[in-house]
Design a protein around this nucleic acid. Structure first.
Lengths: 346, 346
DNA sequence: TTGTAAGCGTTATCAG
DNA sequence: CTGATAACGCTTACAA
């Protein structure tokens, strides 16, 4: 009907009161008579009034929105995280903006600035590569920022954080393999995951060192940044697993489940039985891990919970509640891709 | 430094001009001297000015945002779609809101209304269940709405649409099985996908009828709404595949890849070889389909493209370009889960 | 070329 | 209890 939206002034005119009164009536302000409140609310409904969030935001300095930056939306890791974050945002009537950085720091900071320009109430960045190089561009940001599994090589201290203990996860994986009798354990990493690759590598080395085992260079292969970026994680696993095999390993801890699946494909191509000829451990526990043959043993990362946690942190910050950085402990999920090591002699 | 953000008035004061001049300078308005333009722009940069998108929106009646509603963010189908939509939105400097309806029509309409309240410039709804029952609540929405694969049983005519030809996809699947020599082909559907389940069932029946084959009731099983909602698609496949088997089929067209994977699991549990004992065709071509054993034959649905297309439609509508509803044709991707039917006699 | 003033739709501050 | 009036930060006639 009406070409234009109805505003509180329109209602005021129709009701013969001031727009101030209408605003109050609509907000159940106690300073208003029960009668007019009801009358105005009915009228508003009849007239199809919908408050203008933009105008409200201008006045209240709150938009009720949160910006969420991930490297890739379609990556199951992040889509789970987003879903968790969205779910808790929704319970508070908050809406979320989503944007993908594609692992490009420049793009990432652009997105953050866009969100800031849109006056979001808070920002969550997953796998952030924002390092201290960018602090000058970021320190003027006056809304809460929470980083999830941040990837910058130096620790970012300007912001809050939620992170999984990557190092501990890697140790769990390697210790599991050691428990199964493996001694020659390799690591297949990804060169485009700066920080977490470093940490998982570290955990891998620690676990072996603690067991009194040296780690020759031939036991660790890191797929170079550009091929991962180009071909994806699975292909990287598939491509570089053979190199590791030449190193003489009997088991491999893979950077994540996708790399492990790539390795699985490589094994199949080489006619190597998993886990009989080679044990494989992944990281993340994405859905794929359940449906592949053999089912993947992996380190579970609570993706959804991390999204929920990060969002809850932002909301608490907005309520001026105190919050603490979170370090989550991943757990081992044993399935079929790992088995007891059989000595060559047998 | 400054506790508060810098506005064009602050810049105006610092530059000794009116805020109007600043606004013009920042927008490269030709009505301004080259000199002051440069001076103001430098000053703005120095002072760390960031335009307030909220205030701009209030004035210009454009927010530069698009609302996107999906049933589930973590579902690879939708996350791909979102990624496509986000990518084209980003090229136009648009930001997107994302929200999940969890397949609940009431929640879906709430989200749409929230977006509308936030003055988004356009709305995309995937797998919408908005039927004509809701038109009264929706007809006052004055922004472009594009539905992707809408699921309401009656066709929704109020809005624009992008959809895959489900019926044709189903026919392709069944014809493929017929070509392989199968005659007793079953359909394993999902009761919570109102429209697309109906259409795929229809395509299934058509293909068989055209081949002169009757379709006894025992050949089609539809997993009931509540168990699918509760347990998920894979479990539904796993649970109901055996029923179909009892119907005596030699091949099954599954509602989607997840159902097919569930069926695969069921086969494995029953020690039935795929495709030797039973051929399986899925729908969608999600990533999982590649990595499962045997790799799934499926009907590819161009998910990312559908997101891109829908977003492009919204943008065109905003530019007042004419647009047409899109009906996409899915294609068969033959992999390993289907094979030639061996007559029982052999 | 620049400035003044009005207005976008709200909420908030005061008087009545 | 209610209503003027002034903000919020910006764009855009209309004047100078």
């Amino acid at each position: 009907m009406s070409q234009t939206r109805v505003s509180i002034k329109d209602i005021a005119r129709a009701a013969g009161v001031s727009h101030t009164t209408v605003s109050r009536a609509l907000h159940d302000n106690p300073l208003i008579s029960e009668k007019t409140r009801a009358r105005i609310q009915d009228l508003a409904r009849e007239m199809g009034y919908i408050p203008d969030a933009v105008a409200q935001s201008l006045q209240t300095r709150r938009t009720g929105t949160i910006g969420l930056v991930v490297t890739s939306i379609a990556d199951p890791f992040f889509s789970d995280l987003i879903e968790g974050a969205e779910a808790v945002a929704a319970t508070s009537g908050m809406s979320i903006f989503i944007s993908a950085s594609h692992n490009d720091p420049e793009r990432e900071i652009e997105v953050v600035e866009t969100f800031h320009r849109r006056r979001v109430d808070g920002i969550i960045v997953a796998a952030s590569r924002l390092s201290n190089r960018y602090t000058t561009r970021l320190e003027h940001i006056r809304v809460p920022v929470v980083l999830v599994n941040q990837q910058a090589e130096e620790e970012q201290t300007l912001f809050y954080s939620v992170a999984v203990d990557e190092c501990q996860g890697a140790r769990l994986a390697v210790e599991h393999l050691l428990d199964l009798g493996h001694r020659r354990v390799g690591y297949l990493g990804l060169g485009n995951r700066l920080r977490s690759n470093q940490q998982r590598l570290e955990g891998y080395r620690e676990a072996l060192t603690w067991a009194g085992i040296q780690t020759p260079d031939a036991w660790t292969v890191i797929a170079p940044l550009d091929v991962v970026q180009q071909e994806g994680d699975v292909a990287a696993g598939q491509l570089f697993f053979p190199q590791l095999l030449d190193g003489g390993i009997s088991a491999v801890f893979c950077y994540n489940d996708r790399v492990a699946i790539g390795s699985l494909m490589a094994c199949r191509a080489l006619n190597l039985a998993v886990p009989q000829a080679c044990s494989l451990v992944g990281f993340d526990d994405i859905e794929l891990a359940h449906y592949v043959t053999p089912k993947l043993t992996t380190i579970r990362q609570p993706r959804r919970e991390m999204g929920e946690l990060a969002m809850q942190m932002v909301l608490d910050l907005l309520d001026e509640k105190p919050v603490e950085n979170q370090k989550l402990v991943p757990v081992l999920v044993q399935r079929e891709s790992t088995g007891r090591h059989k000595e060559e002699g047998l």
